[in-house]
């Protein structure tokens, strides 16, 4: 699989503060990556260094397996960083025409992209008269103008009301279905969980986890069982080597961390003359995993 972007040992220091500390990862073509981390974890600084608006202290950013330099790479990229930045005195269409000039692409796609973000009928209105949601949608249209190979979205729903969040979420979902390579930095973890194949979690400028979203949540899955005498059953279960941990929850149910399936566990309980009223397989949400990983 082609590597679109490779970050090698990237660091950024502001005086004594290390905003990004020796970060390395690869972005493979066609995958959707979630870049997660609490505020101040270095997400925006990392994306800023990738996009050349923040100077790196050390490390390397390689575009398309070193076949392209940064400027060439950026011309194949679409990006929204933090908030939409356009000329307020230009209309939506004029702003996109200017982007086409900078990206050296034909402006024929403008109307199509404006339709995609539902701004087709507002294209001649000045940017300064747009609501934040419309501005954000225009930014998405702008980032898609060159049919980018890589799309970088940094908090694309920041500051939006629930309706605006939903609109942007739908657009991102639609784009991700088209097989584009996306890096999505967002606090909307349920959305990241739905859209992303892969997550990179940062904390204090360092990578603390990188991997497949489903592996991450399945790795921490558990079985929840309901029995008549939970203390007694917990003692029995703790003695089984395949069971790592048993937690007696406040609601009387047992939380069993194990590699065993519900069926296997039921067999073991049956052999021990224990009847389970209910065995449910559960896994944490990405949000729960994120909180556990970052201790936030």
């Amino acid at each position: 699989m082609e590597t679109i972007l490779e970050i090698k040992n990237l660091s950024k220091e502001y005086g004594k503060l290390k905003a990004v500390d020796g970060l390395s990862f690869q972005i493979q073509k066609g995958k959707v990556y979630g870049l997660l981390g609490p505020n101040g974890s270095g997400k925006s600084t990392t994306l800023g260094m990738i996009l050349g608006v923040v100077n790196k202290t050390s490390g390397e950013v390689e575009w398309f397996e070193n076949r392209l330099n940064q400027q060439q790479g950026l011309k194949k990229t679409g990006a929204i960083i933090e908030r939409p930045n356009f000329y307020p005195y230009l209309s939506a269409r004029q702003n996109l025409e200017l982007v086409c000039k900078i990206k050296e692409i034909n402006p024929k796609n403008i109307d199509e992209k404006l339709e995609l973000v539902q701004l087709g009928d507002r294209k001649d209105e000045l940017f300064k008269n747009f609501s934040l949601g419309m501005k954000q949608r225009l930014a998405i249209a702008s980032s898609l103008l060159n049919d980018p190979e890589l799309l970088i979205l940094d908090e694309p729903t920041n500051g939006l009301d629930p309706k605006g969040i939903r609109e942007i979420r739908d657009i991102i979902h639609q784009i991700s279905q088209e097989g584009k390579t996306i890096i999505l930095a967002s606090h909307l973890l349920d959305e990241v969980e739905k859209v992303c194949d892969h997550v990179i979690v940062l904390e204090k400028g360092k990578k603390i986890f990188e991997g497949n979203v489903h592996e991450l949540v399945n790795h921490k899955s558990w079985l929840e069982i309901e029995v008549d005498n939970p203390d007694n059953v917990a003692r029995h279960l703790s003695a089984i080597p395949e069971i790592y941990e048993v937690i007696h929850k406040e609601n009387g149910k047992l939380q069993v961390f194990t590699e065993l399936t519900g069926k296997d566990l039921n067999k073991i309980l049956w052999k021990k003359n224990i009847a389970a009223h209910q065995i449910i397989s559960k896994k944490p949400s990405l949000e729960e995993m994120f909180i556990e990983l970052t201790h936030s």
């Binding site: 050349g52 400027q71 950026l74 011309k75 990006a79 960083i81 930045n85 000329y87 900078i102 990206k103």
Partner: peptide, 10 residues
């Protein structure tokens, strides 16, 4: 903030 955007655009 269009200087930043111009650079991001390539």
């Amino acid at each position: 903030r269009t200087l930043k955007q111009n650079l991001i655009d390539g």
